[in-house]
Design a protein around this nucleic acid. Sequence first.
DNA 1: TACTAAATTTAGGCGCGCTTAACTTTTTAG
DNA 2: CTAAAAAGTTAAGCGCGCCTAAATTTAGTA
Lengths: 236, 236
Amino acid sequence: MSADRKSPGYSRSTEDYLKAIYELESEGGPAQTSAIADALGVAPPSVSGMVKRLSESGLLEHAPYRGVQLTRAGRRTALKMVRRHRILETYLTTKLGYDWDSVHDEAERMEHAVSDGLIERMAMALGYPRHDPHGAPIPTKDGEIDEQEALVPLIDVPVGSMAELRMVSDRDPELLRFMASLGLRVGVAFEVIGRQPFKGPTAIRLAGQHAKERDQVIGHELAENLSCVVLEGAVG
Amino acid sequence: MSADRKSPGYSRSTEDYLKAIYELESEGGPAQTSAIADALGVAPPSVSGMVKRLSESGLLEHAPYRGVQLTRAGRRTALKMVRRHRILETYLTTKLGYDWDSVHDEAERMEHAVSDGLIERMAMALGYPRHDPHGAPIPTKDGEIDEQEALVPLIDVPVGSMAELRMVSDRDPELLRFMASLGLRVGVAFEVIGRQPFKGPTAIRLAGQHAKERDQVIGHELAENLSCVVLEGAVG
DNA sequence: TACTAAATTTAGGCGCGCTTAACTTTTTAG
DNA sequence: CTAAAAAGTTAAGCGCGCCTAAATTTAGTA
Ligand SMILES: [Mn+2]
Ligand SMILES: [Mn+2]
Ligand SMILES: [Mn+2]
Ligand SMILES: [Mn+2]
């Protein structure tokens, strides 16, 4: 019963840098300075400075002018923050009536203020959920995270296929509100019934819906953000 | 629907200073530098420096060498923090199974990270409680706080009186755990059946308890911390 | 290969919130 | 009333995390 001190007790900035770097790394290759700056809304020199401190603390390794990679310790902390963030988002929507478009900002602040114990109590109250409200997998307490089965952005799902919406970015509340207004939620199944070229819209038909809301036209930018699993069939 | 930005967005330190000063002021007179330093666990010169910044921001007034007083704006923010702290403590005990001795530290950090909206959702989920788990009154959203009816520390409750425990400091987890082990909770009624002089213990008899746990002997320091209301009777 | 554009790092600086050491003011005791 | 003790402030300095401007490195193109 002693693992509950906020361990070394990193600052909010440190935790956010590690989490952002983790997410950038999981898109392949080392995280670059400007991408980190972009993700955190700071200027590139701020990142250079912070990267120096973090690598001196052994949380990441820096190949100058090339990018940055988390060490084992850095990844451990990053995954802890990802778990916190996603448990918090799930708790707020499930237990306190938040909409899925408004939980991100709240979680972004709270993740740095709560104890391990509170996160575990929330997880228990939720029945140890595997996914957050946007479909993202929740790492376990020990830092294990489900490999995503091959998810495909809606723009790449072939016309004629059946697919299911599995995940969407939680970063744009406007987009999430719009999705909700279309009846698009994680878990919904649909058929891709058409797509126009030149970044045109994708047309889908939702499974098990009333006639009025069954067919939807999804713009290109939105379709890029919808991660789906293809269920069957394909047309070249 | 626009009053939800964390208003001017004060820092954690600022919010803790204002809250501590509010609590010191409510014990009468202006808050003194060393008392503030003591409450926050910082050195006195740190307080001098912070007091300068806070008075330049219009949150308090400083009479050099005399002490500080909250302005209207300072008091408003302080009461907001007190509300947050007490709602959080109540939520954690009621909804997440925390014991009353472990909520303070968690609330002390979370109070700076949550939004107004989350506090109101918690308050609603709790049915707008008037008191926190330690018996302290919870200010309303508009900053109204119940005047405490005259509370008396147990050491001043006359032998022979009936009294009820109404409030206890939330700052010492050890003390709270010990109280729980004696069956002493907010709301419990008892008769004062004896008291020894020279800072000796006070003996009480709890109402409606089984024989074995009915009579308790309370040491002087603990008795100082128990705020009671006297119900009837008095013996010089 | 040579030059340019883009990305990154270095230099210099700022506010916050904290420290210790030294100095000043106020309070208390004799 | 005066001298010592206590309380408070000022001075100097530090790490964090951010900024802009300037220098450097890398990548891309003619
Ligand atoms: Mn999120
Ligand atoms: Mn965050
Ligand atoms: Mn408390
Ligand atoms: Mn606090």
